Amino acid sequence: MTDLSAHHYGITVADLDTAVEFYRDTFDLDVLDRFEVSGEAFSEAVGLDGATGRFAHLDVDGARIELVEYDPEGTAEPPRSLDQPGAKHLGLAVDDVDEFYARLPGDAETLSEPQTTSSGARILGVRDPEGNRVEVIEA
């Protein structure tokens, strides 16, 4: 059997430039690469006729986050609460959740102030410009 390793964690967005700016500026992520993919092989691989994808890869401590904007754009799904099957979120670790919270831009949408869970973890929920949930957890 072929050995598996994680390559990237993907998030589909409607506006790639706005999403890149948010993740770069809010979480201080490095943009590793930006590129476009199209053609019949790509369309077949992603199961979308005539698809083109604009991609950005960002680095978070050696993990790659892939943001992708598709053309043609699909219909937006209604937001799902985290208790619904198929719901997604991105988890990012910081040394100090309270310090991170204090440095957030004023227009950043948070779900609450930092909280301490029953397991003792300090967490903060943030939404990106398209409503995707990012969990910030104190490492």
Results as ranks from 00 to 15, higher is better:
1 M>H: 11
1 M>Q: 10
2 T>I: 12
2 T>D: 13
4 L>K: 09
4 L>N: 07
5 S>M: 06
6 A>Q: 09
7 H>A: 15
7 H>G: 08
7 H>I: 14
9 Y>Q: 06
10 G>F: 00
10 G>L: 07
11 I>W: 05
11 I>R: 04
12 T>R: 10
13 V>L: 03
15 D>N: 15
16 L>Y: 04
17 D>Q: 13
18 T>M: 13
20 V>T: 03
22 F>T: 01
24 R>E: 11
25 D>T: 12
25 D>Q: 14
26 T>Q: 07
26 T>D: 05
27 F>P: 01
32 L>Q: 11
33 D>M: 15
33 D>Y: 14
34 R>C: 10
34 R>P: 07
35 F>A: 15
37 V>Q: 08
37 V>Y: 05
37 V>W: 08
38 S>V: 09
40 E>N: 04
40 E>G: 05
41 A>P: 04
41 A>I: 11
41 A>Q: 08
43 S>I: 03
43 S>N: 00
45 A>M: 03
47 G>F: 06
48 L>Q: 05
48 L>C: 06
48 L>A: 10
48 L>T: 01
52 T>M: 01
52 T>F: 03
52 T>Y: 05
53 G>V: 05
53 G>M: 01
54 R>H: 08
54 R>P: 00
54 R>T: 10
55 F>C: 06
56 A>H: 02
57 H>E: 13
58 L>T: 02
58 L>A: 02
58 L>R: 03
59 D>G: 00
60 V>T: 05
60 V>Q: 03
61 D>C: 07
61 D>H: 11
62 G>E: 03
63 A>H: 04
63 A>N: 06
63 A>P: 01
64 R>P: 05
64 R>D: 10
65 I>F: 02
65 I>V: 04
65 I>T: 01
66 E>I: 08
67 L>F: 02
68 V>G: 08
69 E>D: 01
69 E>N: 04
71 D>G: 11
73 E>Y: 10
75 T>F: 11
75 T>M: 12
75 T>Y: 07
77 E>V: 14
77 E>R: 11
79 P>S: 09
80 R>L: 15
81 S>W: 08
83 D>A: 12
83 D>G: 12
83 D>W: 03
84 Q>G: 08
86 G>V: 00
87 A>T: 04
87 A>Y: 04
88 K>G: 14
89 H>P: 00
90 L>F: 05
92 L>D: 03
93 A>C: 14
93 A>F: 12
94 V>K: 00
95 D>S: 08
96 D>A: 12
96 D>V: 11
98 D>C: 10
99 E>R: 13
100 F>I: 06
100 F>A: 06
100 F>C: 07
102 A>T: 03
103 R>P: 05
103 R>D: 15
105 P>V: 07
105 P>D: 05
106 G>V: 05
106 G>R: 00
108 A>K: 01
108 A>P: 06
109 E>D: 07
111 L>N: 04
112 S>A: 15
113 E>V: 14
114 P>D: 10
114 P>T: 08
114 P>C: 13
115 Q>G: 13
115 Q>N: 12
115 Q>F: 14
116 T>R: 10
116 T>H: 01
118 S>I: 15
118 S>Q: 15
119 S>P: 09
120 G>I: 13
122 R>Q: 09
123 I>R: 06
123 I>K: 06
125 G>S: 09
125 G>A: 13
128 D>W: 06
129 P>D: 00
130 E>M: 15
130 E>H: 12
130 E>F: 15
135 E>H: 03
137 I>T: 04
138 E>F: 07
139 A>N: 09
139 A>D: 09
139 A>H: 10
139 A>T: 07
